[in-house]
Write a protein that binds this DNA or RNA. Structure first.
Lengths: 228, 228, 228, 228
DNA sequence: CATGAATGAGACTTCATTCAT
DNA sequence: TATGAATGAAGTCTCATTCAT
């Protein structure tokens, strides 16, 4: 019965189709996790494929080489990283202290505390072997993040809320403790519990860091309290 | 022609020099440089040997495996690091603000600004593949450094100079910006000039960071100025 | 020219044949031959692979190490050996002298005169470097073979056909000349013709050995003649 | 004081001299033991040197290569092997049965039960990688031993004591059980106790073997008993 | 599209041999 | 003569990549 065959294959097609479209995503997720866990070189192509539920050959159907897969992982995770931050800044109304507090807490919730934070660790570890990624990552992640925090600080200075200080250095100082914590959680933190600084409570860290930094920034630190 | 012979033999470096005493040091130096540059996995054993001016086999005369070489690099560059800081703390006389400023500047001069700073980057990148290294590094580097800064802050709190705050979080916040800068200089910073946050002047960063942090810490931040 | 294409494609053997089913057997055969010829250590893994018509990597697809390949060779060539003899013993009807004669002739046909006899030579040569192989080979080959001959002699003693004698020593004495001949053929015998005791006709040896041994064993040696 | 120096160096010289002359012997002994234990390929040149109490370089002062050392080991141990047997045969007076019994017991005491028996195992294991040894060993050891036993049997046949039988096959049968036992003791026997046929008592074996073989050989086996 | 058997360049490591001391 | 540091060819094994099915 031709019609029966036709309808059955027609029914199956969408599933295949959907599969085909989600494959890259599944591969990138598996690759991200494994690259973060074991590093680029120590992760075998077949491991990634298996973790994504496909065979070795299929991986190469979507990415021509392990290196290209690596770059794709970085690129794909960058778009989300960037989108996160810019959203927040755009429509914020309130004091600049509250803005910084919101940025940090949001970053931690949406990036630092998710597997995506591992992306920074991989890039940090591997850029020297993938020079082309450097400019890319700098332009797409580091610079925007810098601008984000720089702008937030500038906003506070303009309004008279913050003391005037070297913006780049301040932005760096504001971001470093959180990113550094995320880095450590993806390296030392993965071993024994309480190994390294993994025993630091991220929320306490953010609160304390804001407490310190805002008091340091504010012209009149008296009443300022970070909003957690 | 005697003179010809003399000059030629003077020019020809001996192919097989016997230098058991200095070899380990030379190998460790070459290994440090290459591991920091390319990562552990991407550095071939023979490269290290050649960089140290010896053959592949000679490397294995001194270190039984590439992994042990790596551990030796870490160990050698750490022993001195730890001692430095503890000394400073022990004999310091002056305000705790000045103590923190001194610690940071010293760290930058002796570690952050030397190739040894690259060690932290390698360890961060590779530690998940070397579980035993994790415990070692945590015990020998991370914990002592934490204790060092924790003690310094505690000293300030005890003397009434600093506000009481969560010590671990404060210590982390104090160290992160500097170490993070060092990490970046060994990854993004090695590519194009002014790529990443490599364009931040370390001295400005330290000064600004201290300015912020001390003002945040101090009970009476009015007159406090970091000593650079 | 279609015919030209056809003939040329028929002549060109496919470079990458997929034959998962038959590969292990081919590899084991090649390994047996080479190990017997050159010894375990002197045979390179790649040689075995090439001899089986595959590449180095393919060998490791089927056997995780050269040592495991060696063990597989031993196992494969042994399982059948043991079964053979036990069967013969089980269903034999006739005098014990005839049983011994049959066992020896069978062993020579199925083992001594086949490449499998070389196995004993390899194991003998290499066993001190493979302690676990020693236990395996002893349990799977030496002990069963001893039991086989011991039982056959015991059978003759029980029926009054043979004199009572130390069974282990008799079994050893019965097997030694044949195995020893096989050993020599795989060592000295492989060099020049008529080198060593390779010039001994195995059939004459077996006949003579049986003639001697049975006459020695039998209570009434008068009429006994080995059946060749 | 020149005289003091002179006399002291004169006193030391003989020691050195003696040392120099015993070195080869010490090296050969160490090499024999290690080659028997681990095989030729698995024995490192440095091991041999250390076992002989000298450094790696010194070994090469006496033997130009590991292969030559191996050949020297074989050669040196052959001369003694051969001498042993020929002596015995020459001046024997008594029955041929007693002669065979004497030959076997002597061989076991002087060869089979000494480390020198290991020589046969090494040669057996390695001849195929050292073809030049084959002819040498055959001519110097195997053939003489064959002649020795062949002659003894011939002697018995000539005197009417033994039945006429194929001499080569009889000689092989007579020697095999003892040599085979020695081989096993140097391979399987070195592992766990009671591993392989190592649990056979050599004296029981020889006695039983002679009991069997002589009874098989003798025209009138009635009164014959091997003299142990 | 998907598979996984097959490939082979390349990495780590060993060790026979050399040679400066 | 004796040493042992140094060498580098060679071997085992891995794994990114290809391709017949």
């Amino acid at each position: 019965m031709p019609s029966a065959y036709a309808s059955s294959s027609a029914a199956a097609a969408p599933l295949r189709q959907r599969r085909k479209e989600t494959r890259p995503q599944e591969l990138l997720e598996a690759a991200l996790r494994l690259f973060v866990e074991k590093g680029f070189a120590a992760t075998r192509a077949e491991e990634v494929a298996r973790a994504a539920g496909v065979s070795k050959g299929t991986l190469y159907l979507y990415y021509p080489s392990k290196e290209e897969l690596f770059k794709a992982v970085v690129r794909q995770n960058l778009t989300s990283l960037i989108a996160e931050g810019l959203e927040v800044l755009a429509q914020f109304e309130g004091s600049s202290s509250d803005l910084l507090a919101t940025l940090m807490n949001t970053w931690w919730d949406r990036v630092g505390n998710t597997p995506a934070a591992g992306i920074h660790k991989i890039v940090l570890s591997e850029v020297r072997n993938f020079p082309e990624l450097a400019a890319f990552y700098t332009a797409e992640v580091i610079e925007p993040a810098n601008r984000l925090f720089t702008s937030a600080v500038q906003r506070g200075v303009d309004s008279g809320e913050f003391r005037p200080m070297p913006l780049n250095a301040v932005a760096h100082t504001l971001m470093a403790p959180m990113i550094f914590l995320a880095l450590h959680r993806h390296s030392f933190g993965a071993c024994q519990p309480a190994c390294g600084s993994a025993d630091i409570d991220p929320l306490v860290l953010i609160h304390t860091h804001l407490d310190l930094a805002l008091r340091g920034l504010q012209v009149r630190p008296s009443g300022a309290r970070p909003a957690t």
